[in-house]
Amino acid sequence: MKLNGWFCLKLTLTACDVLFMHNNTLNTLAYEACPQCDLLLKSAAVAVGIKAHCPRCGCQLYRPRHYSVERTFALSLTGLILFIPVNLLPLVGILVLGNAQEASLWSGVSTLYAEGLWGVAILVFLSSMAFPFLKISLSLLVSGHLYFDKPNRYLKVWLRTLQHLDEWAMLEVYTLGIIVACVKLASRTELKFGLGLAAFIALLLVIVMLTSSLDEHLFWQRIAALNKQ
């Protein structure tokens, strides 16, 4: 174990060879495999605040979090509430000849669609509205069921879907897009920031914290334990 950076300890798991028990069965829980180099590793109980790494390729295997289920539940609930003002209120606006012109998440999509660029419009709609919404609601569903210890036969499907659409929800990138657009506009006209932008920034923070608080390793273990009951 060695100190990595300022605040996080780095633990390298040990490579091992598989060991069959006397009746030729195998305790698969005793092993891990690196997702990126397929080295067989010995499972280790990793404490909060420590990152587990693969010794061969250096890939981060898991990083346990404090109160992962509780935090994910609270954050996704907050995110879902914030989603309403973010989608209803305008984000930024400019004043043209005395009347304001404003942009919201939806107005960008609809203008692109009206211009005939439906491919881009659909992509922007999915990555800035549909997938973030799905991501938050699926996190809420999964963490809610785990928080209240309620088994549900769709839990596995929800968590798998959540893992696969995670990278297609791009609110962080959208924020950068807003910043660049604002800088471009600010040189010509006066900008007007709406309440929607404040809500958007809050939602962005919530989503970033949500992504880091969701510990998939723990969630899968909890789901497996729930289904055994």
Partner: peptide, 14 residues
Amino acid sequence: MLDIFMISILVSIV
């Protein structure tokens, strides 16, 4: 995707 998002904001505002 930055450029695409920036354009989607600019087209609706200007």
